[in-house]
Design a protein around this nucleic acid. Sequence first.
DNA 1: ACCTGAACACCGTTCAAGT
DNA 2: ACCTGAACACCGTTCAAGT
Lengths: 278, 278
Amino acid sequence: MPGGTRATRRREVRVDGEDTIPMRRPDPDSPEGRGGAGIVVPAGPPSTGRAGLDRRRILGAAIEYIDRHGLAALTMRRLGAHLGVEAMALYRYVPGREQLLDGVVETVVDELYGDPEVHLRAAHGWQDYAQRLAHGVRRIALAHPEVFPLVATRPPAAPWVRPPLRSLRWIESFLTVMTDSGFSPEAAVAAYRAYSSFLLGHLLLEVSQKGVQITPEDAPEGVPDTGTDLGQYPLVVELEELLSRDESAAEFEEALENLLDRLESVRAEGRVPGERSE
Amino acid sequence: MPGGTRATRRREVRVDGEDTIPMRRPDPDSPEGRGGAGIVVPAGPPSTGRAGLDRRRILGAAIEYIDRHGLAALTMRRLGAHLGVEAMALYRYVPGREQLLDGVVETVVDELYGDPEVHLRAAHGWQDYAQRLAHGVRRIALAHPEVFPLVATRPPAAPWVRPPLRSLRWIESFLTVMTDSGFSPEAAVAAYRAYSSFLLGHLLLEVSQKGVQITPEDAPEGVPDTGTDLGQYPLVVELEELLSRDESAAEFEEALENLLDRLESVRAEGRVPGERSE
DNA sequence: ACCTGAACACCGTTCAAGT
DNA sequence: ACCTGAACACCGTTCAAGT
C-alpha cells in the first residue's frame, strides 16, 4: 500500500496526490510508549519516557498533546505529567506557557522544512513553487487542526511578517522566487500578502470544518445540538446537504489556481497589483 | 466634521467612504463613567453603574473589556468587578466563561444588523449586496480587533455553518440574494464558501497587522523585539519598507472585486464553480 | 546540573446563605 | 429574586531546597 516505487531509503516520502490528508505524525522521534491506555487520560501515569528532558522533546510532546486533547487541555502541569516530570521542571527549558505556544507554532511551521515535496525550490517556475508550498502548508494544517488556529493568532517574529508563512525563512524564500521570476518588489510583496491571506482563510475554514467538531471536552452529548431554531432559515435548511458537503480539496485547488493566474497576469503586465489591468 | 448632510435624526449614520476605520463604540447604551482613571485598571473601582445586571449589559461590558485590555485579560472575576459585582453574580445570566465568549461573538456579529449601510438588501443587485456586506464585516473586524479572532475560532451554531458569517441569519440572507440572482444552489453554496474564506483570511491578517501589536500585557518593553537574527534574510530586510506598508484597504477592495468578478462569470455561464470556464 | 516541594496569587465554578 | 462568602479544584509561576 505505501508502495514506494522510487528509491526511498529515507523518511517515507509520500508520492501520491494531495487529497489523502496523510495525518502523518509530527516527528519520528517521540518515543511514544505502548500507549493502549485509552483516549482521555488527563492525569494518568506518564505515557512518555523518563529523563532526558530538553526543549525539542517538550515541544514535541506539547504538539502531540494538543493534537490529542485540544489546545485548552494543555496546561504546564499536565504536560509535565505527560512527560513524567513535575510542571516546574519545564521552566528550565521554556520561559513560560506563552513562549511554549510560540515554540509549538514555530515547530509546526518548520515541518515544512522536512517536506521533500516542497523543498525543491523553483525547479519548475514560480507557479509550481507556490503550488507546492501551498500544499505543504495545507498538509500541516490538516495534520494539526488543533494547532493551526494558533498559527493564525499568535503575533509573529517581526511585526510586518504575517501568518501563515510566519517564518522569515519562508518569506525570504517566497520573495526570492517571485522577484527572480520577474515580479517587481512591489508586486512580490503584494503577491505575498494575497497568497498568505488566501492560505489563512481557506485553511482556517477547512480545519474548523473537520476535526475540531464540538468542543474538545464535552463531545459525547447525544443530540447534535439543535439549540438554535431552524425553520426561520428555510434556504439554509433546504441547502443543508450542499452546505455540509466537503469540497474543500477541490475548492482549495480552484481558488489557488485562480489566485496564481491573477498573479501571473500582474507579473506579465509588469503592473503593481493595485492597478487596473487594461 | 461628522457632517450629516442627510436627514439623520437617528443613530448617527456614517456617510463617508470605507477607509476611515471608524472604530465606533459597540453600543450607545454602556453608561461609561467619567473614565479618566488611566489605561490599565486591572482591579480598580467599578467603572460601570450599579445594579440592573442583565445579559445584554454583561455582554456589552465583556466586549468593551476585551477591546480595551485584550482577550486574555478577561476573567469572570475582573468582568464582575468591572460591573461592580462579584464574579458569581454573572452566573445567573451566563452559564460559564465559554458561553460568555460565544455570546460576545454573537453580539459582535449581530452589530451588522444595526448597520444601515448593509441592510438595504439587494436593492442594486447581488454584487452590490456582497460588497456592502463585506465592508460591514470589515468595519466590525476593525472596530473589535481583539474580538475578531474569536469569530474565526469559536465553533459555530450549526456544524456546517462557518465563520465569519456565523449567524444563520446572514447565511440565509446571502444565499437568498444569490439564488434570487440566478445562482444555482450549488453555485450559491460554493460562492458562500469562497466569500467567507476570503473575508476570514483577509480580515484576520489585517486585524493582526493593526492594534494587536505585541502581546496585550507587556507592550512597554522598549526595544522593538529584534530577538531574531535578521541578515540571514536579505530580501526581507531589503523589502521591509514595502512589507510594513499598510495597503490593506486597497488590497481588500481589489481582492473582493476580483472574487465577485469570478463569481459573476460562474453565474453567467451557469457553471458549478468546480468546472473549467471554457 | 537538573528536578522537586511548598508556596503564592489567581482562576472558574458550586452552593448554601444572606438580604 | 438577586447577590455574596466561603470553599474547592486547578492554574501559572517563584524559589529555596534536595540529589
